[in-house]
């Protein structure tokens, strides 16, 4: 009896430590973001200060606001394009038997695991050639390299799970493949689309390498680059308070989204087996 109680106490201690480790860094950056001046240099485990000045600084920084807009624009455009191309492609991959389907699927999976650096030189040339260096289009183009294979792969697994008989009923009803996709499958797939789109969005939102390489001016930066480059009045002073406030600003919406779509995200991650 006592052993069992001890066991369950130990179990809950384990659970609590998992939660604390997972949440603490974010919690600590929230606390830090409310500190200014010399308060920053005292270590506090619990919130003591509540100064909104860092947030005011961040939200009054036009370049930072601009980078949020850039990120939103780039990530949504990339995701919409990827989904648009992926829906029809995944129907073909999931529902039509043709020669070379296995090979094509493998290639797509392989591309999603490409090291981005391996295409950086070629993409740099292409971006320069197209004249889109230092513009959002450079990112939209380059992010497709991971959002497109990912969405195709995940949607193919979802599409495969839709019942065959519904498709056959539609065929008997006289539906062409295009009608089957748009009028029968798409309405059934929208939860999967939301999940896949969200995962791809997070991937695009968080991307750093391409964004760092293909932007030059402060106004063109995406959020990760902007945060990485945040600097204080002088070179040696790192504005930790502002950085933390900016981090919180860009992370909170993501966390809320992730928590809302928790179950779906887990389903999407395991379906795709690909990192978000």
């Amino acid at each position: 009896m006592i052993k069992r109680q001890l066991n369950s106490v130990a179990f809950y201690l384990l659970v609590i430590s998992i939660v604390v480790v997972a949440v603490f860094p974010f919690y600590y950056s929230v606390i830090t973001s409310f500190k200014t001046g010399t308060d920053l240099f005292s270590v506090d485990y619990f919130p003591k200060h509540f100064d909104l000045r860092n947030y005011r600084d961040v939200l009054n920084n036009d370049n930072f606001l601009r980078s949020i807009l850039n990120s939103v624009f780039i990530a949504s455009t990339t995701v919409v394009c990827a989904l648009f191309l992926a829906v029809t492609a995944s129907y073909a991959l999931a529902r039509v038997r043709f020669k070379g389907r296995g090979l094509l699927l493998m290639t797509i999976l392989a591309v999603s695991m490409f090291p981005q650096i391996a295409v950086l030189a070629g993409l740099f040339e292409m971006v320069r050639f197209l004249g889109i260096y230092n513009s959002p289009w450079a990112m939209i183009l380059s992010y497709t390299i991971f959002t497109l294979p990912f969405t195709v792969w995940v949607l193919t697994t979802f599409m495969r799970d839709l019942p065959v008989e519904i498709e056959e009923a539609a065929i008997v009803d006289g539906a062409t493949p295009w009608v089957i996709i748009t009028q029968v499958f798409l309405p059934l797939l929208w939860p999967a689309l939301v999940t896949t789109g969200l995962l791809a969005f997070i991937g695009a939102w968080n991307e750093f390498l391409f964004a760092l390489t293909f932007t030059a001016s402060e106004t063109m930066r995406t959020v990760p680059v902007a945060i990485a480059m945040l600097s204080g009045a002088s070179d040696h002073e790192i504005p930790w308070g502002t950085i933390m406030a900016a981090s919180v600003v860009v992370t909170v919406p993501l966390i809320i989204l992730v928590l809302i779509f928790q179950r779906k995200i887990v389903a999407g991650l395991t379906a795709g087996g690909v990192k978000g």
Binding site: Y28, T32, N206, P224, S247, T251, L254, V258, L259, Q262
Partner: peptide
């Protein structure tokens, strides 16, 4: 709740977590 909690590190952008931990 625990499952939601462990999703938080995953949701935070790498750059942001690097900065957070850099500070810590």
């Amino acid at each position: 709740l625990v499952r939601a909690a462990i999703l938080i590190p995953w949701a935070i952008p790498t750059i942001v977590s690097a900065k957070m931990w850099g500070w810590m």
